[in-house]
């Protein structure tokens, strides 16, 4: 952020004459990129078209528009001989999981990120090192032992258990991201707050935290989406239909390979993806800067 003088942003470089490339090269680049991206484009196009058609020609051309595929919204769907729980229960559970995860993750990582970025204490280097190490550590390899831990704590088959595990897997990364934001807050501003009469904690939440709001927004969106999309932990640690989430709901419909109802599947899939699409459209720029891997500064 710019606290100094009002700097007018440099004009965006749009003119291709600055980088004089022959038009031919640019056109070829476009053609290659478009060609490479076509499968992706068709995949998502199909997802939409299939969800509103009763039958498709050549896999992708709708024959007749229908909302029958969206019937899961008002009735409980039967797959094979099994009746699935209501989609709204699954949606509520997913929301609970994603929301809870976001709150836990943001609170924990903002506290830890600040301590690691700005405070001096014995073992700081060690902790920083471990954050980065954990960030890289492939936690899924530990799933068996995590199962045992959850079982011991009595958290197996609860959304709470999954929420905590997911939070643990995510906090090294979000802590690392938010630490980067804290690093960028000028020391002068924090010093000012101390001189103006704040103690460390007050300076933290009155002055420093407002300055890392973009970072907090980023990790919030990030952890919400991670919770919303989670599948493996739910699939492994949740059995009760009462705790069904959208991911497992969808997986149960896919489950029977022989008789795939693509219409129903794509409609449910699209329904499940809505918040993701929403966030993607509105935040893709900041998400890109976040690198998804969280290594803001490689």
């Amino acid at each position: 952020m710019d606290i100094g003088s009002n700097v007018t942003p440099a004009p965006k470089m749009k003119s291709p004459t600055l980088l004089r490339k022959s038009h031919r090269k640019i056109i070829i680049s476009y053609i290659i990129l478009t060609f490479l991206s076509l499968p992706l484009f068709f995949m998502y196009l199909w997802l939409f078209l299939s969800s509103i058609s009763s039958e498709m020609v050549a896999g992708i051309i709708p024959k007749q528009i229908t909302f029958e595929n969206w019937r899961f919204l008002w009735e409980n769907v039967e797959v094979g001989s099994r009746q699935l729980p209501s989609i709204w229960l699954a949606t509520w559970n997913t929301l609970l999981l994603a929301g809870g995860l976001t709150i836990i993750e943001v609170i924990i990582s903002v506290m830890a990120g600040y301590a690691l970025s700005r405070m001096e204490f014995p073992g700081r280097t060690f902790f920083l090192r471990s954050v980065i190490l954990l960030h890289a550590f492939p936690s899924v390899a530990l799933l068996i032992a995590v199962f045992y831990v959850l079982d011991t704590l009595g958290l197996i088959d609860t959304l709470w258990g999954v929420m905590l595990v997911k939070a643990a897997l995510q906090i090294p990364m979000s802590t690392y991201i938010i630490k980067g934001f804290f690093d960028d807050v000028p020391w002068d501003v924090e010093w000012s707050a101390l001189i103006d009469g704040c103690n460390r904690i007050k300076a933290w939440y009155q002055v420093v935290i407002p300055l890392v709001k973009p970072g907090i927004a980023a990790i919030s969106i990030f952890s919400f989406l991670a919770g919303w999309s989670e599948f493996l932990l739910l699939y492994t640690f949740i059995f009760d239909d009462q705790n069904i989430t959208l991911a497992t709901y969808l997986q149960k419909i896919i489950g029977d390979f022989q008789m795939v109802d693509y219409g129903l599947l794509t409609a449910a899939g699209l329904f499940y993806m809505l918040p993701v699409i929403f966030f993607f459209i509105f935040t893709q720029k900041s998400l890109m800067q976040m690198n998804m891997g969280g290594n803001k500064r490689v």
Binding site: S37, M43, A247, Y272, F280
Partner: peptide
Amino acid sequence: ALWMLPRITPPVVYVLLWLWI
């Protein structure tokens, strides 16, 4: 942004797309 889509699509939905392919 287009190429980010597979990464942010929930795995279950992403795999569904490939099941169709």
